[in-house]
């Protein structure tokens, strides 16, 4: 069974790009969210195995969403989508319960390596 992926990002460009990266038999993107509030809702609805989480988003940041989701589910794998210069935010996200991070610009093989390690596949 493919792993269910929830893509969280406020930019449609990034969401599409991440979708493309996960066009592989092991994965299925089951939902997208555009902010932290929606992320928590979609998480409850779809119960994904993996969440790619942008950090800076309107309404509620990826860090807060991560903290909230981690309270609901200890097992879901959360990978933060960050950019250079966001290192302190990434540390905060790790503390909030994120498993790992990827750094923009994304390269498919790098992203795959990180998520596969985090998912243990």
């Amino acid at each position: 069974m493919p792993k269910k992926v929830l893509v969280v990002d406020d930019a449609v460009f990034m969401r599409n790009m991440i979708r493309d990266i996960f066009k592989a038999p092991e994965f299925e993107v089951v939902a997208e969210a555009t902010n932290g509030v929606e992320a928590v809702e979609k998480f409850r609805e779809f119960k994904p195995d993996l969440i790619t989480m942008d950090i800076v988003m309107p309404f509620r940041s990826g860090i807060e969403a991560t903290r909230e989701i981690r309270k609901l589910d200890a097992g879901v794998v959360i990978v933060m989508c960050s950019a250079l210069g966001q290192e302190t935010l990434v540390m905060e996200a790790i503390e909030a319960g994120a498993n790992d991070f990827i750094v923009k610009p994304f390269r498919q093989e790098e992203v795959m390596k990180v998520v596969k390690k985090a998912l243990n596949i």
Binding site: S82, L84, E87, V90, M91, I94, E95, F101, V103
Partner: peptide
């Protein structure tokens, strides 16, 4: 790309 975060993750 973020070595300080890696060190931080080890400590955590």
């Amino acid at each position: 790309k973020m070595p300080a975060t890696r060190a931080f993750m080890v400590l955590k």
